[in-house]
Simulated scan of single mutants.
Amino acid sequence: MAKDPEKPSYSSSHWRQWLNGLAVLFIIAFFWTLIKYMWSFVKIEKEPVKVLVTGAAGMLNLIFHLVFLGQIGYAIVPMIARGLMLGPDQPMILHLLDIEQAGEALDGVSMELIDSAFPLLKGVVHTTDVVEACKDVNIAIMVGGIPRKEGMERNTMLSKNVSIYKAQASALEQHAAADCKVLVVANPANTNALILKEFAPSIPVQNITCLTRLDHNRALSQIAEKIPNNVHVSDVKNVIIWGNHSSTQYPDLNHATATTISGVKPVRELVDSHWSKTEFITTVQQRGAAIIKARKASSALSAASAACDHIRDWVLGTPKGTWVSMGVYSDGSYGIPSGLMYSFPVTCEKGIWSIVQGLKIDEFSRAKMDATAKELIEEKAVAHSCLD
């Protein structure tokens, strides 16, 4: 029978070529797997990041007899050294700054850090010299400052902070790394950050922020406690803190969601509407005062944790579909006047934050957002009068 001319014929040479090709692919796959296996044993350490913490000794509360945020500095440095801020594979050198009266206490903090033998901690610079402290730093966490004390006029408090942040801004301007990221924690955080921005003009405005993540975390926790069936705080996301880190801030849950046993649900469907517009807001606004009343000191632990959260998300990025609250320089979004340090919902990617756009704002929220913006405008005017 004649062979079908359209039917391919496979000779032994074709089979040999096919087997040779298969052998080559197998060898390539084998060596690629071997290289990846061997590479897994090669540890390439990142360059250390220099992190400045001001008010690191936590002693100003004793020196000035104030309820002060200085203990945040003492609380945050071990968190940073353990990798909670920059990740478990990022080494760092800590730069610790405090005033001269706290110099001896600062020595003690440095000794404690060394004694803790943190694997990621590659060095400690502890000093009362602002220039030395700011030298080549990549991240600056500004904890040092003087908050308003009972009986103190707001102008007096702002005036004292203007002088502090003017000096520290100048040092950062001249001596920090060109890409330095700054987080202002000390109250009034928004206005302190604005002062720093004005006296450090070479630092990109995108690189100066203030802390409202503590309020954001408080809001998440309040929602988790309110929702039935034991929803965990990690199941709640996309709450917003609008405005000033003060009693006028607006905690907004209108866009928040929670993962429940029935799936992902809008938070406003899971909680009482009256609670969301009254008790929820006042509890978050007054939480700091409640903690001071309970422990006779400010909320240092939770503030330090929130500062780590803020920097970690800023540097490493926010999870997909999730935003966080950060005090940033307003660009006019949501009708907020430009030129204010105002808390917005933001997402972060590759070290850059972006304000979440397109959220619907109802009449109730609009009034709350404008009220806290008004307070920031007033604080800005007072700070400028102090500069004059």
Rank of each mutant, 00 (worst) to 15 (best):
residue 114 I to G: 01
residue 114 I to N: 05
residue 115 D to Y: 03
residue 121 L to K: 03
residue 122 K to C: 08
residue 122 K to T: 05
residue 122 K to A: 06
residue 123 G to A: 12
residue 123 G to Q: 11
residue 127 T to A: 11
residue 127 T to H: 07
residue 130 V to W: 07
residue 131 V to K: 13
residue 133 A to D: 08
residue 135 K to T: 09
residue 136 D to L: 02
residue 137 V to Q: 04
residue 137 V to E: 05
residue 139 I to C: 07
residue 140 A to P: 10
residue 142 M to E: 15
residue 146 I to K: 09
residue 146 I to D: 03
residue 147 P to A: 15
residue 151 G to F: 09
residue 152 M to N: 05
residue 154 R to Y: 12
residue 155 N to L: 04
residue 155 N to F: 03
residue 156 T to I: 15
residue 156 T to W: 02
residue 156 T to N: 10
residue 158 L to N: 03
residue 159 S to W: 02
residue 160 K to T: 05
residue 162 V to F: 15
residue 163 S to I: 14
residue 164 I to R: 03
residue 165 Y to A: 10
residue 167 A to M: 08
residue 168 Q to D: 00
residue 169 A to I: 08
residue 170 S to N: 06
residue 170 S to G: 12
residue 171 A to T: 11
residue 172 L to N: 09
residue 173 E to P: 01
residue 174 Q to A: 15
residue 175 H to G: 02
residue 177 A to M: 05
residue 177 A to I: 07
residue 178 A to F: 01
residue 181 K to C: 04
residue 184 V to K: 02
residue 187 N to W: 11
residue 188 P to E: 00
residue 188 P to M: 07
residue 189 A to Y: 03
residue 191 T to H: 00
residue 191 T to D: 09
residue 192 N to D: 13
residue 193 A to L: 05
residue 195 I to W: 06
residue 195 I to D: 05
residue 196 L to N: 10
residue 197 K to H: 12
residue 199 F to Y: 15
residue 199 F to E: 06
residue 201 P to L: 11
residue 202 S to N: 15
residue 205 V to L: 02
residue 207 N to L: 02
residue 208 I to L: 08
residue 208 I to P: 11
residue 208 I to N: 11
residue 210 C to D: 13
residue 212 T to Q: 05
residue 213 R to S: 10
residue 215 D to K: 01
residue 215 D to Y: 13
residue 216 H to Q: 13
residue 217 N to A: 14
residue 219 A to L: 03
residue 219 A to N: 02
residue 221 S to W: 00
